[in-house]
Nucleic acid binder design. Structure first.
Length: 196
DNA sequence: TCTCCGATGTGT
DNA sequence: CACATCGGAGAG
């Protein structure tokens, strides 16, 4: 596996307080780190999706509810939700406070402590560890406890990194509304995206 | 490789 | 009753 040097300094709040599409693209190549009692794990972000205000697929498209409330809060917080009765998905809240937008992290390249990821996933192959939004939350030990946590100060955070290859823009996966919007982004050269 | 489908709980 | 999913089964 490629040897990455991870800058352990968390990305600051200003990184997230920008246009959501810009944040979605800039997150490609950045590292997601989670320190837990079982150990720390880290992955390099290779696929993201933007969810915007006025976008019918966005959880914050309609009114503010207990679930989507954090999306309207300050940028740089985690929005984790439970879906399909068994999976968690992890988003980072973007834009200014009051704007209900976020970036879904859809795939990671496993980078650090892949043994713990394999154990959590019950899978051996590196490609099967983080190549989907619910796979990566399982591999990284992310659950509802991380919802609404501050990504600039806690045990779950992101660090700067370089995309290092071309960014491909496509429609989003697994939605039924807003299917025409080009809001999915992934690294062309990565073998670890959920699908090409 | 692909398409289909069941699992399983919560939001609207 | 839809849902920002996953993995196993069966077909090709």
């Amino acid at each position: 596996m490629k040897d990455f040097k991870i800058n352990c300094h968390p990305l600051p709040g200003e990184f997230y307080a920008r246009d959501t599409v810009t944040v979605s693209k800039d997150l490609l190549g950045c590292f997601l780190v989670h320190r837990t009692p079982a150990g720390a794990t880290a992955g390099r972000i290779v696929e993201t999706e933007a969810y915007l205000q006025g976008d019918p697929a966005c959880h914050a498209a309609r009114s503010m509810t207990p679930r989507n409330k954090v999306m309207f809060g300050p940028p740089g917080y985690a929005y984790v939700y439970f879906t399909y009765g068994m999976h968690y998905c992890f988003n980072v809240v973007s834009q200014a406070e009051g704007v209900g937008e976020a970036v879904l992290i859809r795939a990671l390249e496993p980078v650090y402590n892949t043994g713990l990821m394999q154990q959590r996933r019950g899978r051996e192959r590196l490609k099967d560890l983080c190549s989907g939004p619910a796979k990566l939350t399982q591999a990284m030990g992310i659950g509802i406890e991380q919802n609404c946590t501050d990504l600039t100060t806690g045990d779950l955070y992101l660090c700067a990194g370089d995309a290092g290859s071309a960014i491909i823009t496509t429609t989003r996966i697994g939605i039924r509304e807003g299917t025409d919007l080009l809001l999915r982004f992934y690294l062309q050269d990565s073998r670890y995206v959920s699908r090409k």
